[in-house]
Write a protein that binds this DNA or RNA. Structure first.
Lengths: 146, 146
DNA sequence: TCAATTGCGTTATGCTATAACGTGTGTCAT
DNA sequence: ATGACACACGTTATAGCATAACGCAATTGA
């Protein structure tokens, strides 16, 4: 009774816990820490951090969620159009960047092919094999910079 | 007796604690966590994390040390030539990127003007005011990818 | 049917970071 | 000088983030 439930639609089937965590992240308009997610899900039977972290690990693996390293927090992927951004799944469009407003907490996810390319060139030149690339810009969004 | 001691050479004068922390980081060829630094400095009278974090805060402010967000660790700035990389000090050359080897722990610091420029353009277009930008590539260095 | 895999729940623990308090010491305008 | 201020420091306690290690339940597939 703990196996993933396949959906009629698409993408990897999520287990109950994974769905709950993903839903919470999707509804949020700001990044959430694992412990905040845990608190939101107490009513649904969550008791321990590991329940959240395990679900997050899978969602990260599926490319449905991103981790913001500079915040120790998580967001749902902003462009769910066709299987998303993952690296190592073949599809997707490479590295994603984030602009994080330090005032309102809003996060904009975007992709810049040229940036990707430049970093890839550097890696190639140095014989470095990239596994995962993090790009996070912290500052003030248009609304907050007013 | 706790005030910074001015050196004959240059740069902001460091206090004793700041010097100790900076020295430890400079001698290390891999990033160090605050707690690892603390352990290295027990013999020099360090007893509590705050002593390390306070020194690190200043060193970060001076641009002499970088924080690796994806590692929760710190490195000495790799290009001490003329006052370094800082943002907000006027000098320096903008955002710095890091390539982190997940096998040997070695970190390469570099700068790509074009990447900087592209991210700056995105920000301008979105009316986003960047304060600090993080770029970290994790993977395998040439030696370890062998 | 049996072994392997995967998800789950629980308890305990470890690592990372900061809050809040008080002390000492320089600076500088009065 | 003296008092106000800023800053570095030391200490204790606590908050916030993440994982180790155990065992159970269900699914899969040889």
């Amino acid at each position: 009774m703990n196996a993933p439930v396949s959906t009629p639609t698409s993408a990897p089937a999520l287990t109950k816990n994974q769905s709950l965590v993903f839903d919470v992240l999707t509804r949020s308009d700001a990044p959430m820490s694992a412990y905040t997610i845990l608190d939101r899900l107490r009513d649904h039977g969550f008791r321990a951090p590991l329940q959240v972290y395990r679900a997050l690990d899978k969602l990260l693996e599926f490319g449905m969620v991103h981790r913001l390293e500079s915040l120790n927090a998580f967001v749902a992927c902003a462009h769910p159009e066709s299987e998303c951004c993952g690296q190592g799944h073949g599809h997707g469009h490479g590295t994603v960047a984030f602009a994080i407003c330090e005032s309102c907490g809003h996060v904009s996810e975007f992709h810049d092919h040229e940036v990707d390319h430049r970093l890839g060139d550097w890696a190639k030149a140095k014989n470095f094999k990239p596994a995962k690339t993090t790009i996070e810009i912290r500052g003030l969004c248009g609304a907050c910079a007013a």
